[in-house]
């Protein structure tokens, strides 16, 4: 299998090198590693990568240049897998990304996640495979903001919900929570039923359904 070609954008040199090492170690091919949003656009145009990993905050303005570049790239090519790394949870960042294209092949993760290298590489692979990956902290914020229907969920079901939003399969959730896959299936069914969501028919679909539901009314509270 051809390795996935990655364009990496991160302005911190050490972290950029670390990420490049991580990607190579996990079988990705780093086509270009750049330090600002302009270079990111140019590199994507030049290398036509199979995955873009970008820091949200980059020169010259050090606000959300990376994210805006990512959204732009997704608008030009909705099939381009993009993972944005953010310093803190910002629901509007996650929303901008999820709203770009059809909401598939995108990821929004906190930067600190990269140090759990295997999980991070796994998340990248899921995005490349067409999945949607959202940081558990984003889900936690959304859950906190949507009280009413979520209060009906048991703590275990909320854990399952957070992992579902991360785009994990039932098997992966079972491994994470150290329970059987059948138990997970039961929890997932309960979650979907309690949130009035259509029954499970594919991982990315249910991620989108869960996120759309969570963002529905409560997500705009921070405005």
């Amino acid at each position: 299998m051809q390795p996935v070609r990655v364009v990496l954008a991160e302005d911190g040199v050490l972290l950029r090198e670390g990420l490049a090492g991580l990607l190579a170690r996990f079988g990705f091919e780093v086509a270009a590693a750049v330090g600002d949003a302009g270079a990111l656009r140019a590199a994507v145009a030049a290398h036509a990568p199979g995955l873009v990993v970008t820091d949200v905050r980059m020169p010259p303005g050090f606000t959300d240049e990376g994210l805006r570049a990512a959204v732009e790239l997704r608008r030009a090519d909705p099939a381009l897998p993009v993972v944005a790394l953010s310093q803190y949870v910002e629901l509007s960042y996650a929303a901008d990304l999820l709203d770009s294209g059809d909401g598939r092949r995108v990821g929004y993760l906190l930067k600190d996640r990269v140090v759990d290298v295997a999980e991070f590489a796994d998340a990248l692979r899921r995005v490349v495979a067409g999945g949607t990956v959202v940081d558990p902290k984003v889900v936690r914020q959304l859950v906190r903001r949507r009280r009413d229907p979520l209060e009906r969920l048991s703590p275990r079901e909320r854990e399952v919900l957070a992992l579902m939003a991360e785009g994990r399969s039932n098997a992966a959730i079972a491994r994470e929570l150290v329970v059987s896959e059948a138990t997970v299936g039961k929890h997932v069914g309960a979650v979907l039923a309690k949130l009035d969501l259509p029954p499970d028919d594919g991982t990315h679909r249910r991620v989108l359904a869960v996120l759309a539901h969570l963002r529905g009314e409560g997500g705009s509270a921070a405005g």
């Binding site: 911190g12 090492g21 991580l22 290298v117």
Partner: peptide, 11 residues
């Protein structure tokens, strides 16, 4: 740098 260092340790 700390994130970079932690990443290096993980690798």
């Amino acid at each position: 740098r700390l994130v970079g260092l932690t990443l290096q340790i993980a690798l």
